[in-house]
Design a protein around this nucleic acid. Structure first.
Lengths: 151, 151
DNA sequence: GGTCAAAGCTTGAGTTGCTGAAGCACCTGG
DNA sequence: CCAGGTGCTTCAGCAACTCAAGCTTTGACC
C-alpha cells in the first residue's frame, strides 16, 4: 500500500499539532461528561484509575502528581460515596482506595456520555480502528517513558 | 462479541482507553517541558494559542475557559515578557494578545524539548505517520463539535 | 529487645486555574 | 443622546497542585 503520490509524509511538527488538537478535544469531551455528574476532571480521572484497588501512593504515581494532592481528591470522592479507603493487610501505614458500586456506575455513565468521542469512533472504518489501536499500543510505552532514553 | 481472528477490530472501549492513555502521556510530556521553562501547562497552552495575535475573548474560546480566567494567565505571561496586550484598532474595548520574540523562542524550545513525543514519532514508519495524520484530520472536526449532533 | 532510618499518609502554607457575579469602559442602534 | 449590549477586569470562593513538616508504622541493625 501507500503508493499514492498525493499523500505526503507529515512532519513531526504537523503530527504534534494534530495529536495535540485531538488530545485536547478528547479531554474536553471527557471533562464535560464528568462535569455533568458533578465531578472535576481530576476526580473523574482518579475514579478511572481505581477500577482496581490501589494504594494512595501508587495512585499518585498513576495520576502523575504529588501524594499529598491525592489525599484531597480521594477525600472528595469519599464524601461523594464514590470510593472508600480500606486498610491494607500486612501494612497498617498503607490505605487502599476502593471504588464503590456507585462510583463504578458513575464512571460507566460518564464514559457512555462522551458523545463526541463515540461519534468520532463511529465514523472510523475497521481498518482505521485497527491502525489507530496498533499505533497507540506501539507509541504508548515510548511516550510514557518506559524506554531507557531520556530522563 | 465473538471475533476470533488474530487482528480483531478494537471496541469503542478499547479505543477510548488507548486514546486516553496516549493523550495523557502526551500532555505530561508537554507539561514537563513547559515546567522546565517555568511555565504552567495553561500558560504554555495559551502561548501556543497566540502565535497569531488574538483578542482576549477569542483566546478564552480557544482555551475553553472563562474570559475572566484569561486575564490572570495573560497577566503572568506579560509579567514574564512572553506576551503583550495591544489595543485593537477600531474598538478600544478590545485588547489583543501578541506573543513577543522571547515568547516565540520559549515556545519553540518547549516543543523541541518534548523528547518522549519526538522519540515516539521517530519510531513510526512513514505509513503509520500518514495513517495517524489522516485519522486525526478526519476525527478532529467531529471531536471538536463541528457536527450538529449532540449538545 | 531497643533504636533509628525510611516509607506511607496527612496537614498546612502558598500559588495557580477556574467560575460566577459585579463593575467599568466602550460601542451601537434607536 | 440615551439604552442596551459587548469586552475586559476585579473580587470572592473552591479545586488542584507543590513543598515542607509531622505522625504512625515498619524493617533493619546493634
Amino acid at each position: 500500500m501507500g503508493s499514492t503520490a498525493t499523500t505526503t509524509v507529515p512532519t513531526n511538527a504537523e503530527l504534534m499539532e494534530a495529536l495535540a488538537a485531538v488530545g485536547a478535544a478528547y479531554f474536553q469531551d471527557f471533562a464535560g461528561a464528568a462535569a455533568r455528574h458533578g465531578l472535576s476532571s481530576s476526580q473523574a480521572k482518579a475514579l478511572g484509575a481505581v477500577q482496581e484497588p490501589v494504594p494512595m501512593r501508587a495512585l499518585a504515581g498513576r495520576l502523575g502528581c504529588d501524594a499529598s494532592n491525592v489525599t484531597g481528591i480521594v477525600d472528595r470522592l469519599e464524601s461523594l460515596g464514590l470510593a472508600n479507603r480500606a486498610a491494607a493487610a500486612g501494612d497498617r501505614r498503607v490505605k487502599i482506595v476502593v471504588i464503590t458500586a456507585e462510583g463504578r456506575e458513575i464512571l460507566n455513565r460518564i464514559r457512555g456520555e462522551m458523545s463526541r468521542t463515540h461519534q468520532a469512533f463511529e465514523a472510523m472504518t475497521d481498518e482505521q480502528r485497527i491502525a489507530l489501536h496498533s499505533i497507540c499500543g506501539q507509541v504508548l510505552p515510548v511516550l510514557a517513558g518506559r524506554t531507557g532514553g531520556a530522563q
